[in-house]
Design a protein around this nucleic acid. Structure first.
Lengths: 211, 211
DNA sequence: CTTCATATGAGCATTGTCGCCCATCGCCGC
DNA sequence: GCGGCGATGGGCGACAATGCTCATATGAAG
């Protein structure tokens, strides 16, 4: 019996998913959550085989929740549910430890197949595009490291996205303002961005901070 | 028997809604559609009692579809389904001829109640907030403020969150940079914020832009 | 041992942002 | 018609952010 955790902030969607899963002979819904934080709590207490997480949820995104769950419990496999198949969260989801990525646009059978696949410890991709992307991602040696950014740079980006000024970041990290500017400048160059506004969007996409 | 049309671009959501409705003794799903245009076609051919339309769909939004359906067939009542209860589409939905507005965040029983309510030609509101808004809307003769922000200010905020500089916004809107700064300044004051970084987060929270 | 990445920091010039005050115009409600 | 608000803009000053170049120390990788 595959025990599944459902996390989605839309009650109606949750009901639909639950009915879908309960209709399968080999699956049962172990818990439901209506936001990311609750998803992490329920995942750690219920220890389901599969956690189905919506990408976008209040309090904590699906990406952040996936990181939390995977870092505490490798036995729970994460299946990410997204609105659009072409959104930018695909790679981030894999880096956050997700074993599968399914679009809500897909058929319900896709979701069921995906749950069975990731429950067995394998990886599920919902579209051909993503299959190609995945192969490229693996070939590029992205198997271990998760970032272009160094830990220090990540810290700075996080604070920038929290609306800290360079000076405030310098104080918070006990650095010179100049050093903060260096890190920020290096990050902008690495990501091909122009200003902190783009960085904020990046940080939110990556689930580094909450909107 | 209440005959229902389901229109949503997310297959998994469609399945959930269909199961939910088919489980009711007095309802049946007469048709499904995966975008707005198809929703109009199916509504006009099947003439369901209730058309449940997602606000955001490809090819034609739920709002446009509602207008089309209502202008051709007053017998079909439209129930609008939205992602967030606080999005700006509430008033527009009513103006487009919707008889009800339900958030996907609500419980499944809300949706079922809403379908029965609008099938009887009455109006359904899914949340207390919307009840209050509705009363105000009726009292004000639908001059309802959906935000603290004026339309112009919303435009500017949107562009700020898209990483436009003041100068670029001025060009895009054919304005002076000074005017853009005025709008931005007024918005910052209204929302009690300090800089554009906070505005970006606000805009993303509000769903004005994608991260 | 040398090379490379990371972290740290400076100087200087340019551009962007923000706060504050002000003015005009048009529209709407009383 | 008066008063308020929204949209439009100007001016000025202070501060923040960005670009560019450069320098140093450290530790890991070769």
């Amino acid at each position: 019996m595959i025990r599944v955790l459902i996390a989605d902030d839309h009650g109606i969607v949750r009901s639909g998913l639950t009915m879908l899963i309960e209709r399968q002979a080999d699956m049962t819904v172990a818990a439901e959550a209506q936001d990311g934080l609750e998803a992490v709590e329920r995942a750690l207490s219920e220890r389901p085989d599969v956690a189905v997480l919506d990408v976008s949820m209040p309090r904590m995104t699906g990406l952040q929740a996936a990181r939390q769950i995977r870092s505490h419990d490798q036995a729970t496999h994460v299946l990410m549910l997204s609105m659009h198949e072409d959104d930018g969260y695909f790679f981030e989801a894999l880096e956050a430890g997700a074993s599968g990525y399914v679009s809500k646009r897909g058929a319900d059978s896709d979701l069921i197949d995906a749950i069975r696949t990731v429950a067995n410890g394998r990886t599920f991709l919902s579209s051909r595009t993503q299959g190609a992307l995945m192969r490229q991602w693996l070939e590029d040696g992205h198997t271990g490291p998760r970032d272009d950014l160094t830990p220090r740079e990540l810290e700075v980006v996080k604070l920038i996205a929290e609306a800290y000024t360079n000076r405030q970041i310098a104080e918070a990290l006990t650095l010179s303002e100049k050093t903060v500017e260096s890190h920020r400048g290096n990050v902008l160059a690495k990501l091909g961005m122009r200003d902190r506004v783009e960085l904020v969007r990046y940080a939110i996409r990556r689930g580094l901070v909450e909107p």
